[in-house]
Amino acid sequence: MKLCKAELPDGKPCPTKVDKGQEYCPYHLANQYAKVKKGVLAVAGTVVTGVLTIVAQSLNSSESE
């Protein structure tokens, strides 16, 4: 079984073995996807907030007219 390709914060290689067909150990693989999912959520959150702000502003301006 291969060892994980990731590096630990102190620069040492991760000592954990990988699953068959993977290059990273379960922790580092799942951690990468956690970061991706959190990133996507943050972007989606910003987009939704932006859209809602624009909608609210347009509603306000149409009311004042």
Binding site: Q22, Y33, V36, K38
Partner: peptide, 19 residues
Amino acid sequence: KLPRGKLGMLFSRHLDIPE
């Protein structure tokens, strides 16, 4: 029950599996 593959991890209901 934890997903092992990349797709499974991406679509897992747990946002942060290690956590």
